[in-house]
């Protein structure tokens, strides 16, 4: 299938080159795909969106939507793209009905002509159609914004953090709506800072500091997680985290909700002695290839440090674990680049 959206080596800087917002970003989105841009605030997601919607010019690199170049054919693109900015940006002093009519007429169409596309969403806000947009709840505003973005039957829908600041139920509903829109053949690119929403996309791009760390399906990204991952918990979770972190066999450990996620350095061929700072451990022959050994090992570290209420179990890594792994690597390469530049 041909790529509907194609981004090549996009670079965007702000403040005359001082702030690098988008760093050599490239990705392709296939026709009819639900594609997610996942990254923390300030990762550069909105800049990419604004370049794709032709309102921002990139410093270098090219981007095409539906075969049109974002710089040369910006007029064509504006007719083919539905854009929902991260900030609610419809007229707050106009009613739902007036906002929809205005954007419909501007695109040379009517609400009725596109009813089958927006019906599901429109029916939910219809009872309030005479209410001013500024007086709507967050979830309603978001539905109205989606309706306005869809009013001209766009080929590509760009949604910039549509679920930020929206309650859990509305978020779930919103993703259901996106699924239905996708079924109608619309290519959707959505950005979100929430890792749990990543799984709802067909493919995702993980972004950090303007750089794409990985583009793949959520399943593949999780499968690519190199080590076994464990979740640990004790009565003093902060001290447990510090103890794990200070241990030389620990590869990564970070707080994750009420648990600590840990992975160990994976080197089954070498038997090592394990010294610790505050107590003498008996010598262990570690064979971390087996999960039980590793669990036992972790339990022992915790016990040796006098923790109580210890719970340690093996878990499946999630997108967030992958993201943190990639992020630490990304930081490492950035630091490496910085030192070589010096």
């Amino acid at each position: 299938m041909p790529a509907t959206v194609s981004v090549q080596n996009l670079i965007k800087t702000y403040d005359k080159g001082k702030v690098l917002a988008v760093d050599k970003v490239s990705f392709d989105v296939k026709a009819g795909e639900l594609f997610g841009l996942i990254g923390a605030d300030g990762a550069g997601k909105s800049s990419i969106f604004r370049i794709l919607t032709t309102v921002l010019l990139a410093d270098s690199g090219t981007a095409t939507l539906a075969g049109y170049d974002v710089v040369k054919d910006y007029r064509e693109i504006r007719n083919r793209v539905g854009y929902m900015p991260g900030k609610f940006s419809l007229y707050q002093d106009l009613t739902i009905q007036e906002n929809l009519e205005f954007f419909a007429t501007v695109f040379g169409t009517t609400i009725e002509a596109n009813m089958d596309l927006i019906r599901d969403i429109y029916d939910q806000i219809k009872p309030f159609s005479n209410r001013r947009a500024g007086k709507l709840s967050g979830g309603m505003k978001q539905k109205l914004a989606l309706c306005c973005a869809l009013i001209h039957k766009p080929e590509v829908l760009l949604l910039d953090e549509p679920t930020t600041g929206v309650d859990v139920v509305s978020r779930k509903e919103f993703w259901e709506m996106l699924k239905k829109l996708k079924a109608q053949g619309i290519t959707i690119i959505v950005s979100t800072p929430y890792m749990d929403e990543a799984k709802r996309c067909e493919r995702i791009a993980l972004i950090q500091n303007g750089r794409i760390m990985s583009v793949d399906t959520p399943g593949n990204i999780i499968r690519a997680y190199p080590e076994k991952l464990y979740a640990a918990k004790s009565d003093n979770i902060y001290r447990l985290l510090k103890d794990f972190r200070s241990h030389p066999e620990t590869d990564r450990s970070f707080a994750f909700g009420e648990y600590i996620h840990i992975s160990l350095k994976n080197d089954p061929t070498v038997n090592r002695q394990l010294p610790t700072a505050n107590c003498q451990l008996p010598t262990v022959n570690l064979q971390p290839s087996t999960v039980n050994r590793q669990l036992e090992f972790l339990n022992r570290i915790a016990a040796e440090n006098n923790h109580t209420g210890i719970q340690i179990k093996e878990i499946e890594p999630g997108i967030e674990d992958s993201f943190i792994l990639l992020m630490s690597r990304n930081d490492a390469t950035t630091n490496l680049q910085k030192t070589t530049e010096k």
Binding site: T53, T54, V55, R75, R78, N79, V81, Y83, P85, K87, F88, S89, L90, Y91, Q92, F103, V106, F107, G108, C148
Partner: peptide, 13 residues
């Protein structure tokens, strides 16, 4: 300030 210009900018206006 409200951001509506962002939405207008992506229309054919």
């Amino acid at each position: 300030e409200v951001g509506t210009i962002e939405q207008i900018n992506v229309t054919p206006i």
